[in-house]
Design a binder for these strands. Structure first.
Length: 734
RNA sequence: GGGCGUUUAGCUCAGUUGGUUAGAGCGUCACAUUGACAUUGUGAAGGUCAGAGGUUCAACUCCUCUAACGCCCACCA
């Protein structure tokens, strides 16, 4: 060791690698060295002190990473590297998400460009399998690409434990959860109003509906009441659904209509007779105070219909065209039918007036087409009755009692509000890309059989009949990713679940608090009886200079890899971490990245200077000189800075930690300490020994405290130290 | 209709339980500097901390109200 360091001191200055300026293009080589070292895998770490684990939010395997992912990688890698250097048994488990609906949407766009569609493929024999295979190949190549991107950002995660949401073992965990829910009566299949996207032809959960303000018309329509020889006026935005009307509802307290309850009215398009019912859901003050009830195509109406045992008339097909029950609208799409309805009503004198009306319309969050409420048989997780007590309540309590802490704290309020008002969760999707719901239906009695083992069930669990039809729906992706922390750890290393669950931190964007974090807490507690993670850290979203959200359609997305190539991953990471406090969005600014690229170079040159000086003064890292009292003080100051940075990291204040280290290294170490010691070194007095020792020790501490933030340049410097205690800075003692 | 966040220097943001002349980076200006670094150094200008009121010996920090911007939730046809 000693021999080696001596030899090194004489040769490193000849090494082209240590020339100015710092060359970040060598980052990849450094990453390869780390990966080969095996230290990303906690099993290979030296004696360790406690466990530390982060499960990486699995990026969607349907495209490439964006800067948002870079924020995620940067922040998580800071925590991981810090804790690893602190001597913890540290695991960062990476993964990828098949991202069911989202991926299918991306893939359908691709098909559209190729002049075909999912429906064309599905028409072929074995179409489902063909489409599935195509999307599978598509995600596999994306996944590989994405892994490389994560590597280029410097993520020190354990690739040997990488998971995909469609790994057979993961699927089997998801299936047992489903079966448990089923056996315990917490998941059910029922005809319910669901959010139907006509374009994608699948149902969506309430969270996937995006509400938009739209300018529409409010139509006032007269319904005749023959027995009383009068009319009742109703207001609606959807005259095209009139053939689906099965009643008119008024508020029983409404004096105007009190005596009409129980009477019959004539629906003005197909002229059928419908009852007038009294229901509290009707707002006396809105419109005319009378509401047409179309249970098949409206959520409120569906509830009213149930209360009054009304039939449902579904007039709209799944492809968004009206069927023959709609009478004159058959074959038309919604907008055409609406025009036609107005025309018919006008002719018959049933149309009283039309007002302009501005209201919220539910749309598909992906394609923005209007969501059609439809009654369909679907699978739901009960979160309102039994499930509220058994699934929702424990999740709320775990946060209330502080077992799970959320940063920033104000997000806890948002979490509570959503959880308190949660409704049953529709987990059925009518797409091919996803985990099939493991259910078969009996062709004789119609009952369902849940079968989670391989192959098909032999007979119906209810009547024993042998002819069964397989469910074609797949799970909502979030149902599987909601199980991610335990699903990954239960299926990786032997003791992983025992050692690492609950995990230390769940770090992700605040935009998926409900979609993902809330579901992980609920399902984690439900399945394992334990919280899935102790802390939730919600980072801000990256926006462009005009504070716009980055999106492909706006064309303002930044490819993190382009930035890495230009300025280095270290610089990008710093730029995304500094100024990013939890829950607060961060602005993407190239100048900022440039600034931290400069800092990489500064640090590099500090190291060059210190090591060159050490060399020319015959400094020996094994026989460090005695420090003068003054230098002792400076070293102590440096230690204090490092302690402060540690505290900030432990309190999840990464921005502050990074700034403290940055400021110290540049403006104290380089601008003051080095400048002062330069003179002493030039004089070559008896203080030189102390000076050079001091510089060396501060350099070592500096690269340690910067390593979690800027792993590459610090490691590159460490590798050039005349004497190293460890093979890599990555596993040095903090 | 509820709720949340933000408002501090030209720009982007820090400011942890209230405590001396309010900080950083970038930008601007002046000067310096060819042996660690021009991806540099030294220094300067620049803020009535959104507004109003209140609590306090003391408020950017706590309370109330107002405004602007942004976001989330919500089955009023």
């Amino acid at each position: 060791m000693h021999q080696k360091s001596i030899e090194f001191t004489y040769t490193f200055l000849m090494n082209d690698d240590f020339l100015k300026p710092y060359d970040h293009s060598k980052e990849k080589e450094i990453y390869d060295l780390w990966e080969k070292s095996g230290f990303f895998n906690p099993d290979n770490l030296e004696k360790t002190d406690g466990n530390y684990c982060i499960i990486m939010p699995p990026p969607n395997a349907n495209g490439s990473l964006h800067v948002g992912h870079a924020v995620m990688v940067a922040i998580e890698d800071i925590m991981i590297r810090y804790n690893r250097m602190k001597g913890k048994n540290t695991l960062w488990l990476p993964g990828a998400d098949h991202a069911g609906f989202e991926t299918q949407v991306v893939f359908e766009k691709k098909l559209e460009k190729e002049g075909t569609s999912r429906f064309e493929i599905l028409k072929q024999e074995g179409g489902r399998e063909i489409l599935y295979k195509k999307i599978w190949d598509f995600t596999q190549s994306n996944k590989e690409h994405m892994e490389n991107q994560v590597k280029q950002l410097g993520a020190s995660c354990d690739w040997e434990r990488e998971k995909f949401t469609l790994d057979p073992k993961i699927i089997s965990v998801v299936y047992s959860t489903f079966k448990k829910l089923y056996n315990e009566g917490l998941v059910y299949r029922a005809k319910r109003i669901v959010n139907w996207c006509v374009k994608h032809q699948t149902s969506l959960s309430d969270l996937e509906v995006s509400w938009e303000q739209r300018e529409d018309k409010l139509y006032y329509i007269k319904y005749k009441i023959p027995s009383q020889k009068r009319e009742i006026l109703i207001a609606t935005t959807r005259p095209e659904t009139i053939p689906g009307d099965v009643a008119i509802a008024v508020n029983p307290k409404d004096k105007r209509y009190k005596d009409l309850v129980g009477e019959k009215a004539i629906e003005p398009i197909t002229q059928k007779e419908i009852p007038i019912v009294g229901d509290d859901a009707v707002d006396i003050g809105f419109g005319t105070g009378a509401l047409k009830i179309t249970p098949a195509h409206d959520g409120v109406d569906f509830e009213v219909g149930k209360r009054h045992s009304l039939e449902t008339i579904a007039t709209l097909n799944l492809d968004g065209r009206f069927n023959k029950l709609s009478g004159p609208f058959e074959g038309m799409k919604v907008n055409e039918a609406r025009e036609k309805a107005v025309e018919i009503l006008q002719k018959s004198g049933s149309l009283d007036k039309i007002d302009n009306y501005s209201h919220q319309v539910g749309t598909c969050y992906k394609c923005k087409s209007v969501i059609e409420p439809m009654i369909l048989d679907q699978w739901f997780i009960d979160l309102s009755e039994k499930g509220k007590k058994e699934i929702v309540r424990p999740a709320i309590d775990s946060v209330k009692k502080g077992k799970i802490k959320i940063f920033p704290k104000f997000q806890e309020k948002i979490f509570f509000h959503w959880m308190e008002n949660i409704r049953d969760w529709n987990i059925s999707r009518q797409i091919v890309w996803g985990i099939p719901i493991p259910v078969w239906y009996c062709t004789a009695c119609g009952k369902e059989t849940v079968h989670i083992e391989k192959g098909s069930p032999k007979n119906c669990s209810a009547c024993g009949h042998t002819e069964l039809r397989k469910e074609t729906d797949v799970f909502d992706t979030w149902f599987s990713s909601g199980q991610w922390p335990f699903a990954t750890l239960q299926t990786s290393g032997e003791n992983d679940f025992k050692n690492f669950y609950p995990t230390s931190v769940m770090e992700t964007g605040y935009d998926i608090l409900f979609f993902w974090v809330a579901r992980m807490i609920m399902l984690g507690l439900y399945v394992t009886g334990k919280i899935p993670f102790e802390t939730v850290y919600l980072h801000g979203l990256v926006r462009d200079k005009d504070k716009q959200k980055m999106s492909k359609s706006k064309g303002n997305v930044v490819d993190p890899l382009g930035v890495v190539e230009q300025f280095g991953a270290d610089a990008l990471r710093m730029a995304l971490v500094v100024g990013n406090s939890p829950g607060q969005d961060v602005i993407y600014d190239e100048n900022k990245i440039k600034g931290y690229r400069n800092f990489s170079n500064k640090l590099w040159n500090i190291a060059r200077f210190v090591l060159a000086s050490a060399d020319s003064h015959g400094f020996n890292a094994d026989l460090r000189g005695q420090l003068t009292a003054e230098d002792e003080k400076l070293l102590k100051q440096c230690e204090e800075i490092k302690t402060k940075a540690s505290q900030e990291i432990e309190n999840y204040r990464f921005s502050q930690a990074a700034e403290i280290a940055y400021h110290y290294v540049w403006h104290d170490f380089a601008d003051k300490i080095i400048e002062d010691k330069k003179k002493i070194l030039a004089e070559n007095s008896d203080k030189s020994d102390s000076a050079i020792t001091l510089l060396y020790l501060i350099l070592l501490d500096s690269i340690k405290m910067l390593h979690p933030f800027m792993p590459f340049v610090t490691e590159a410097i460490y590798q050039r130290l005349p004497k190293k205690d460890k093979e890599f800075l990555m596993v040095e003692e903090w």
